[in-house]
Design a protein around this nucleic acid. Structure first.
Lengths: 201, 201
DNA sequence: GTCTATAATCCGATAGAC
DNA sequence: GTCTATCGGATTATAGAC
């Protein structure tokens, strides 16, 4: 529940189930959910197509487990970043660093989390939208506090939450690019850009 | 070649081919390429599954036509925005307005263009990456000119190109949201945020 | 150029032996 | 709990009549 990686979150599952989830994570991230067959997942995990149905009732249940855990891991990282930084500007910086790091270093997972939403059952979609909204609320509150304290520009605030979320999420789409930038370089530069968007003048 | 909408680009095709492409565009944008069957596309276009093979040799050929035209339309809008604004800051504003408007008002097309890249044949992928790179070059050049003129911050410039592209592209993922914002409101706010990221202080 | 019918293959999921 | 074998249906694409 407070895991900061999917491996951590799945540590108590049977090793076979873990291999299955990691295989599906890679395949779904590379080829998309509908572009991946259950046979491909089973092959990657080193088991027969039938064996996976001992651990998951349907293909969608595998996607749900990956997407939910991914949302929870991202949420937990942002929550922790907030807890460590009372100052609004420092907190925004920490949130951007947490989200950019997640979507860069775990971009395959990030793609499943952000781009396979429509492939989930609608009840699962609604649940995960809830997590996403609570994650976004951390950023919105930090920005609102900064505006109240006079360090952020009030006019920029309303769209800045969406814009900063977009910056971080879209990293999963293009990372890694041809230009050799480390995750740390992107993270630091994006935190600066986010604060430039918000800074009062 | 200089069309600013896909309908314009496809105006000279037989009406049946146009209906087919529009049906596929909607279906691919809503359900994804691999999540859509050729039968569904044919049904939406009001023809039999076999009839589409008179106009396109494969399902991938339909995706390629949509993705290529989408890339060209976006490129043409950005090119025109640049041609109309010699001043670097005004040009950046115009580029952001063009790209955000495109990805908001044509978000279904935007999703196919930006998120179905991996579903294309690799030769087609390479071709479309070329168009994408040329579109991004317009923004990079505007930013470089602004830095040279002293109106943009040199330190912010390298990652700002990627960041601003991300802001615009990611609109296709979340637009329209629950919060009622018009395309024009988002466009204006994002242009402001982009210039705040770049402004020298 | 559109249709009906179908080929050839692949899909998600299950049955039953071990 | 894993395997082989397979069910029932959907998939992309084609054949052949009109």
């Amino acid at each position: 529940m407070a895991a900061e990686t999917v491996q951590e979150a799945w540590a108590d599952l049977p090793p076979t189930a873990q291999r299955l989830l990691m295989a599906a994570l890679d395949a779904f991230g590379e080829q998309g959910y509908h572009g991946t067959s259950t046979r491909q997942v089973a092959l990657r995990a080193g088991m027969s197509p039938a064996a996976m149905y001992m651990h998951f009732a349907t293909k969608e249940a595998i996607l749900y487990e990956i997407a939910r855990t991914g949302h929870e891991v991202n949420h937990e990282r942002v929550r922790r970043a907030c807890a460590e930084h009372p100052d609004p500007a420092e907190r925004v910086r920490a949130i951007v660093e947490a989200m950019v790091t997640f979507h860069a270093e775990h971009h395959t997972l990030g793609r499943v989390v952000q781009y396979e939403h429509a492939s989930l059952a609608s009840a699962h979609q609604r649940e995960l939208i809830g997590i996403r909204r609570r994650t976004e609320a951390f950023l919105r509150e930090a920005i609102d506090e900064g505006v109240a304290a006079g360090v952020f520009e009030a006019a920029a605030a309303p769209m800045a939450t969406t814009a900063i979320m977009s910056l971080a999420i879209d990293v999963a789409r293009w990372y890694p690019s041809q230009r050799s930038r480390t995750s740390a370089q992107i993270t630091a530069a994006y935190a600066d850009l986010a604060l430039r968007m918000l800074a009062s003048r």
